[in-house]
């Protein structure tokens, strides 16, 4: 399954990681429609920009990115969490979201994005409908 042409929105506070993501996404044929490094910026762009999937760093310079996740969930746009904290760092409501652990290789990021996008599949959606 190709990610070619997929429009991606990135929320990541570390400038260098944004650069890395730009390169990785570009290599995958994705289209980076925007990125945000701070919560306010991320929130406004999450609702304003038009994209297929988002990559969310769990921690934005000490600020949790949960609100962005909630906003995206409301819009029905899938997303992937990236974190150095591991599974436990995921907000209670997002435990079954795809998580890509830092530092990440291209393959794990791609798998995460595919998993997130797969959620648009009706069968996959049913399996997580019961989550709070």
């Amino acid at each position: 399954m190709s990610l070619s042409g997929t429009r991606v929105f990135v929320v990541e506070d570390e400038a260098l990681l944004v650069l890395a993501l730009e390169d990785l996404l570009s290599d995958m044929g994705c289209d980076l429609v925007g990125h945000a490094q701070q919560l306010e910026d991320a929130l406004s762009k999450a609702s304003a920009l038009d994209f297929d999937v988002a990559i969310l760093d769990v921690n934005l310079g000490g600020v949790r990115s949960d609100p962005v996740g909630e906003a995206l969930a409301r819009r029905g746009i899938p997303f992937v969490f990236v974190s150095g904290y591991g599974e436990a760092a995921l907000p209670a409501g997002f435990r079954d979201c795809p998580l890509v652990n830092k530092p990440y290789a291209a393959a794990s990021l791609q798998a995460g994005l595919l998993q997130a996008l797969g959620r648009r599949d009706p069968n996959a959606a049913a399996s997580t409908a019961g989550s709070p």
């Binding site: 570390e14 921690n59 974190s83 150095g84 904290y85 760092a89 830092k102 990440y104």
Partner: peptide, 11 residues
Amino acid sequence: NHRVKNTLAIV
């Protein structure tokens, strides 16, 4: 843990 992982990602 986060910082180590983050630093590794930066590296």
